[in-house]
């Protein structure tokens, strides 16, 4: 694939990111309209429209963008790093484990005294899950063991979260498992952006630095080692980068599945299957998908706070089945 075609792809994806980001800012449950939204955004006078734009819609759009980048990027890195087409934070149980960390931080009251405990606990949960997956599958685990390990980690983390929520004396807690399993960006505030944003950015930097080494890793880890790639460093960057970005993302918006699976797959043929090219494209693609899904939940059922993970799973789960079917056919 020629460099110019790749540049065009990135430009097109960037254009779509801008479009969906602006769309996310302009669409809401109220009848503020496009003109009112823009006025609220750019007017220097303090107005109610300004309050809505800066305190409600902007954090929602920024989080949609950042979490989308996180999911797309981490999915692409995990697929390259584990050399497995089905790897994704949701399927591997990393998101569920991050949610468990966040659930512990919030419902025990810890994050009320020490707000940073929320992203840190999400990070810790995600970190444990990545290490566990790595330990369970070994260096060259098959697709099957990887998925089974993910199922086990997911099931355990989900059950533990449910237990914590059920034991909470707050009568609302038990129903909030929906948020943690399916994710939502409704009425998040700038506080959440400031809490989770820095961790996501640190995670992105670590994951992005893996672009070249992942190219070499496609030749196999032994070959990569002889070519001067520090496989240990690559591994720790992949683990920490995923844990930091996914952990922080989940801790403020719940576990949103399948974005990290679908986006790299759709884009891989377009970038000629080169990991270093796939990472930026996937990051942009993840943002487009998540911002679009978040616009759709507001359009489909504005009154009922539809969870964003419902939409991503509706598209992602059939895609996952198709991937499983295809990988089975290849193994036969």
């Amino acid at each position: 694939m020629r460099a110019s075609a790749y540049a065009i792809l990135l430009a097109a994806l960037s254009g779509l990111v801008v479009l969906t980001f602006v769309g996310s800012l302009l669409i809401g449950p109220s009848d503020l309209g496009m003109a009112g939204s823009l006025e609220g955004l750019f007017s220097t006078e303090t107005s109610l429209a300004q309050l809505v734009m800066y305190e409600i819609r902007l954090p929602r759009a920024v989080l949609g963008l950042m979490i989308g980048v996180t999911l797309g990027l981490s999915g692409a890195v995990l697929q390259g790093f584990l050399r497995n087409p089905l790897a994704e934070p949701g399927i591997l149980g990393i998101s569920s484990a991050a949610a468990l960390g966040a659930v512990l931080a919030i419902y025990t009251g810890l994050s009320a005294f020490f707000p940073l405990a929320l992203p840190l606990a999400g990070l810790a949960g995600a970190f444990v899950a990545v290490l566990l997956i790595r330990a369970l599958t070994g260096a060259n685990g098959s697709t099957l063991t990887l998925i089974l390990a993910g199922v086990a980690v997911s099931a355990f983390a989900g059950a533990a979260s449910t237990l914590v929520l059920n034991l909470s004396p707050n009568p609302f807690a038990a129903t909030e498992i929906l948020f943690w399993m399916l994710g939502s960006l409704t009425d998040r505030s700038m506080t959440h952006v400031w809490l989770a944003g820095p961790f996501m950015i640190i995670g992105w930097i670590m994951l992005a630095s893996l672009a070249r080494p992942l190219d070499t890793l496609t030749l196999g880890s032994d070959a990569a080692a002889t070519m001067g790639i520090n496989v240990g460093k690559l591994q720790s960057f992949a683990v920490f980068g995923t844990a930091a970005s996914v952990g922080a993302a989940v801790s403020v918006a719940g576990a949103i599945g399948f974005v990290g699976l679908v986006v790299p797959h759709v884009l891989r043929p377009l970038v000629g299957s080169v990991p270093s090219r796939l990472l930026p494209a996937s990051a942009l693609g993840g943002a487009i998908v998540l911002l679009t899904a978040d616009i759709l939940v507001r359009l489909i059922d504005p009154g009922h706070d539809l969870k964003i993970g419902v939409l991503t799973a509706m598209v992602g789960a059939p895609f996952f089945l198709w991937l499983v079917y295809r990988s089975r056919r290849n193994e036969l």
Partner: peptide, 18 residues
């Protein structure tokens, strides 16, 4: 309530405080 939950986070949202 004795313990926090997301259900009450709307009460601390900056827009609600405003």
């Amino acid at each position: 309530y004795e313990a926090p939950a997301l259900a009450q986070e709307n009460f601390v949202h900056p827009a609600y405080r405003a």
